[in-house]
Amino acid sequence: MTSSIRKAAADDAGALAELAAVTFPLACPPSASPDDIAAHLANKLSERHFREYLADPDTTILVIDGAGGLRGYSLLVNRPAVDPDVVSALGILPSVELSKCYVHPEHHGLGAAAELMQASLHAAAETGGRGIWLGVNSQNARAIRFYEKSGFRKVGTKSFSLGSTVEHDFVLERALP
């Protein structure tokens, strides 16, 4: 299968929302309720929200474009963190947030995530950032291993609202190339 990584365009918003509906639940802890996951998808990852992200000059969305549609995406936010827990944890400034990094489950284990990560690190470095950070659910061992293999290290914790519940994330950071 041939795929390429490119910057998302405005007409990708619907496909991004469909991909998020498949990939976001996989990152949630087993205790997350379907109602809370659905609320998050509706309130943060809908087609309308992706249109807003794509129109935001401080946001970059990269997509893996493969046969049959989008196979993964990352969302970078190039503005200072505002969460006090994140602000106090970060040691490399200025820092870009890797807000989202997901690959369709049919492409797990095939190197697509590593390619998307490398493209995301390059895109973040192009914005002038010295560091990059992300929040990952503390129970998502697979994602934590991937991020650590990608050069990130735990620097703190933060809370994350998922519908009606509060989840706990690790804050991970690394220097940009």
Rank of each mutant, 00 (worst) to 15 (best):
L162T: 14
G128R: 10
G109D: 08
S4Y: 12
T60E: 05
D12F: 01
P80T: 10
A175P: 08
G14L: 09
I144C: 07
A125R: 08
L121Y: 02
P105S: 14
E173F: 07
V86G: 06
V82T: 05
R51H: 10
L93A: 11
L116M: 01
A32M: 12
N78G: 00
P25C: 14
I64R: 15
M117A: 01
Y73L: 04
P177D: 05
I144G: 07
D169Q: 13
P30V: 13
S74V: 00
P94G: 02
A113L: 07
A38M: 12
A8V: 09
H168N: 15
S150L: 05
F24S: 04
D35Y: 05
I37Q: 15
A112K: 09
G14C: 03
L70E: 07
G66Q: 05
L134P: 03
S159Q: 14
H40C: 15
D11L: 05
K100I: 11
K44N: 14
E52S: 13
D169I: 15
R6W: 13
K158L: 15
V77I: 03
G72F: 12
Y147M: 10
L110G: 14
L16V: 04
A39S: 08
G68K: 15
V63C: 13
R142N: 15
S3N: 07
E52P: 01
Q118T: 11
D65V: 13
A10P: 03
L176R: 04
L93G: 04
S161K: 11
F146C: 12
V87N: 08
V103Y: 05
H49F: 13
I61G: 02
P177R: 04
T157Q: 14
F50I: 01
R71N: 10
T59D: 00
D36T: 08
I144H: 02
A141E: 14
P105M: 10
G14V: 04
N137H: 11
E148M: 07
L70H: 10
L75I: 00
G128F: 12
A113S: 10
V63T: 10
F24W: 15
L172P: 04
V63F: 13
K7E: 11
V136L: 09
T2P: 07
L19W: 01
L70Y: 10
I61K: 01
Y102N: 10
R6H: 11
P25D: 10
E47R: 11
